[in-house]
Write a protein that binds this DNA or RNA. Structure first.
Length: 503
RNA sequence: GGCCCUGUAGCUCAACGGCAGAGCAGUUGACUCUUAAUCAAUUGGUUAGAGGUUCGAAUCCUCUCAGGGUCACCA
């Protein structure tokens, strides 16, 4: 349904008309701005008292305290907020009345004058002239704030989770700490990129629309190209394309981008999510472990200035050497079961059920083990922990542990009780790779969407020779959760997907 | 998808079978150093939607919609 103005909006539409009647363009083209609010305050404080500091600032009107012939107001811009001091004697009758009658909270205005300090000590702008820059028709949720013992207490803040996500623009406008989350996220991404670049990795972009999907076990989104008359998939990982580039001669490549998985949504799952993957020739998974520790510590330091991060009430020490433990030992410790005592699917399934774990019928041996990890181990992995040596049957792209046919050189790392990333010593034997793909075909049913089609082109690339390499993938959204102490993924996604609603 | 919880004014919330209310925002008025400004007056509602029970429903029941939590799912 199209927009029907509510009574408050009707009032503002009326003000809009009255502004035009008195010759004021409520949406002018040009703006004069000499300072941000932060710069204006800094300029004043850098000057000896008495020396005039003339500024023109712009921003959204956040609060108004009308004292009659004097008006105090605050405007906010991205740099901060600034109090305006408007007197009728300074700006004139007409301008004074216009401000009182036709200007609302949420409007953008421009104000010029000299900086000064009020009797109560707040650095403010003594306004000589002001101008409307953009009229707000819909009232923005306005919160009132009070400082109590140094802490900001907010009244009537905009907190409705659903509306905050559906109208993220209003959320951002009303809640400065939400703006801060996404500023941190941006810093995180640029820090990761800088770290990769500084270590001689080449940033590349590989197809999002792919004729085949692979590199992970996940259900894909499908789409269709009309002119090519071809079904296409949105990528579920970057892996197979990035490793083709190692065949081509690049030794270190990475990509930061979006993956799409047509699966359930939860506090740590979203249908599209941002991933960092890299592949480094001549590295094995031990090299990747070392690099991962340094990368995460670097990112935390860059974003927060520290590697000690508070998440969910617990202090995470990202800067310490991380605990490294094999999957078998971790499960022995937390689930008190040695899965090597149950070398086949049936006996392991029985053992898992006996200790109260999940053992879906038909789940492969390795998947049962991964289930044990998820149920019994993962929730305990609050401090950064590397779990290494994964079952071979659920890891088709990793090289076997020497002398151990059941495990591969693969690790996942966990922080704050969440899986953050996945890495391995990459399989580069094309014959072995084909066998792995083929056994996967048998393992997953024909109708199972997680069954990856065999990527013949990838095998062809590998037959030309692929250098030994270590690969890595990490969920950036989850890392952003950690660094912003957010309890759900949606808090770190600007526009999380919500079910469509009839308006 | 199962189970549990939630949906009331622009925002934040009360009322829990008996007249739909408060604070903020808005409107009108007073006030030339206020900052949750203050003071006085005042407007604003399809109680998410549809149906049912009842003399009477925001409140109880059923269904639908949306959101949250949790479980399932998720290398």
């Amino acid at each position: 349904m199209s927009w029907q103005p509510n009574p408050l909006e009707e009032q503002r539409l009326d003000k809009l008309a009255r502004l035009r009647e008195i010759g004021i363009d409520p949406y002018p083209l040009r703006v004069e701005r000499t300072h941000t609010t932060h710069e204006a305050i800094a300029a004043f404080e850098a000057t000896t008292e008495g020396e005039p500091v003339k500024v023109i600032v712009c921003g959204r009107l956040l609060s108004v305290r009308d004292m009659g012939k004097t008006i105090f107001a605050h405007i906010g811009d991205e740099s901060g907020r600034l109090q305006l001091f408007l007197r009728r004697d300074d700006i004139g009758d007409e301008s004074h009345t216009t401000f009182k009658k036709l200007i609302d909270l949420g409007d953008f205005i421009q104000a010029g004058g000299e900086m000064f300090r009020t009797k109560l000590g707040e650095v403010s702008l003594h306004v000589r002239e002001w101008r409307l820059l953009s009229k707000a028709i819909s009232p923005l949720p306005v919160a009132k704030e009070q400082e109590v013992d140094g802490k900001i207490v907010r009244y009537s803040a905009f907190t409705d989770v659903e509306e905050r996500y559906r109208q993220r623009y209003a959320d951002l406008a009303a809640n400065p700490e939400v703006r801060d989350i996404f500023r941190k996220r941006a810093h995180l991404v640029s820090a990761l990129r800088r770290f990769m670049d500084d270590h001689d990795f080449l940033e590349v972009e590989t197809p999002i629309l792919q004729p085949l999907y692979g590199g992970a076990a996940a259900k894909p989104f499908t789409t269709y190209h009309n002119q090519l008359k071809q079904e296409l998939f949105l990528r579920i990982s970057f892996e197979l394309y990035l490793k083709r580039l190692l065949v081509g001669g690049y030794e270190r490549v990475y990509e930061i981008g979006r993956d799409f998985r047509n699966e359930g949504v939860s506090f740590k799952h979203n249908p599209e999510f941002t991933q960092l993957e890299f592949y480094a020739a001549y590295w094995d998974f031990h090299d990747v472990m070392d690099f991962t520790e340094r990368m995460v510590a670097y990112a935390a330091e860059a974003v927060l200035g520290t590697t000690d991060v508070v998440f969910n009430g617990k202090m995470l020490q990202l800067g310490q050497p991380w605990l490294r433990i094999t999957m078998r030992d971790a499960i022995k410790h937390f689930a008190e079961i040695d899965y090597m005592d149950y070398p086949d699917q049936a006996s392991l399934a029985a053992a898992v059920r006996k200790i109260g774990g999940e053992a879906p019928p038909g789940a492969p041996w390795g998947k049962l083990i991964d289930g044990l990890l998820g149920d019994f181990v993962e929730p305990h992995l609050i401090q950064p922990t590397i779990i290494m040596n994964y079952p071979r049957d659920i890891s088709p792209l990793a090289k076997a542990v020497p002398g151990d046919p059941l495990h591969v050189e693969r690790f996942e790392f966990f922080i704050g009780g969440m899986e953050m990333g996945n890495a391995f010593t990459e399989l580069n034997d094309p014959i072995d790779q084909r066998e792995r793909f083929e056994s996967l075909q048998e393992m997953f049913g024909k109708d199972d969407e997680e069954r990856n089609p065999i990527d013949e082109d990838y095998l062809r690339a590998m037959r030309y020779g692929m250098p030994p390499n270590g690969g890595f993938g990490m969920g950036i959204d989850r890392l952003a959760m950690l660094l912003t102490d957010s309890r759900t993924l949606r808090e770190v996604l600007l526009f999380p997907h919500l079910r469509e609603r009839e308006e």
